[in-house]
């Protein structure tokens, strides 16, 4: 996708600059952009390493397993088709907990495991089952308790209050998730 968008952006910019006589501004803009990328990466380095380190501590504890149990009732409601597969439900909960804690690189392998388990019970192997559809949409909704990457970047950009966004992020995430769940229920009922 970006293989099309990226060159189009650049070509349009250069053509427009030639037409409007802003070639000089574009020249400066390009080199400013590149040095900005260097400067920002260096400031990101500290904050992103900090959060990754803290989250690695979480990964090594039994917190994921404990929170998984708390999620069980919710998983039962969202995945009514998985009555008989305790294993699938467990893997789904673990993936959701990893997402909640912002452990992106732990969440994906767990999610793939859950998909494989659900695929074993799927009767049409080339089509998503209801449970799988719900699972993927929940994963695209980014259920996150602490949006660590965004906080890290806000800190790097000298925000007066980098964590000010936590509560609004919860609000927006919950709304997105509810819309996603309802839309998936409707769509999987319509399209078999």
């Amino acid at each position: 996708m970006l293989n099309i968008i990226w060159p189009v952006f650049i070509i349009i910019s250069f053509m427009y600059a030639i037409v409007t006589g802003r070639v000089n501004e574009v020249n400066n803009g390009i080199f400013e952009a590149v040095s900005d990328a260097v400067e920002l990466s260096i400031t990101f380095l500290g904050t992103i390493c900090l959060w990754n380190g803290i989250m690695e501590i979480v990964k090594k504890t039994t917190l994921i397993q404990k929170l998984t149990k708390l999620l069980n009732p919710l998983v039962k409601v969202l995945f009514p088709d998985l009555k008989h597969s305790q294993k699938a439900k467990e893997e789904i909960s673990m993936n959701m907990v990893a997402n909640l804690l912002g452990l992106g690189n732990a969440a994906t392998p767990l999610g793939l495991k859950a998909m494989k388990t659900m695929q074993e019970e799927n009767c049409k192997k080339d089509t998503l089952s209801n449970a799988m559809a719900m699972f993927i949409v929940l994963n695209t909704a980014s259920l996150q308790l602490i949006p660590t990457n965004v906080i890290a970047i806000r800190t790097s950009l000298n925000s007066a209050n980098p964590t000010q966004i936590i509560l609004p992020v919860w609000g927006a995430t919950i709304i997105a998730a509810v819309v996603g769940v309802l839309a998936t229920k409707l769509i999987t009922k319509k399209i078999k």
Binding site: L112, M115, K116, M118, Q119, K124, K125, D126, T127, L128, M132, A133, I136, V137, T140, A141, A176, A177, V179, G180, A183, T184, L186, I187, T188, I191, K192
Partner: peptide
């Protein structure tokens, strides 16, 4: 990852979200 071809329009649901 599991060889699914038909996604039953969940892209629409996810984009709506």
């Amino acid at each position: 990852a599991v060889g699914i071809k038909k996604t039953r329009g969940i892209l629409v649901a996810a984009l709506l979200a």
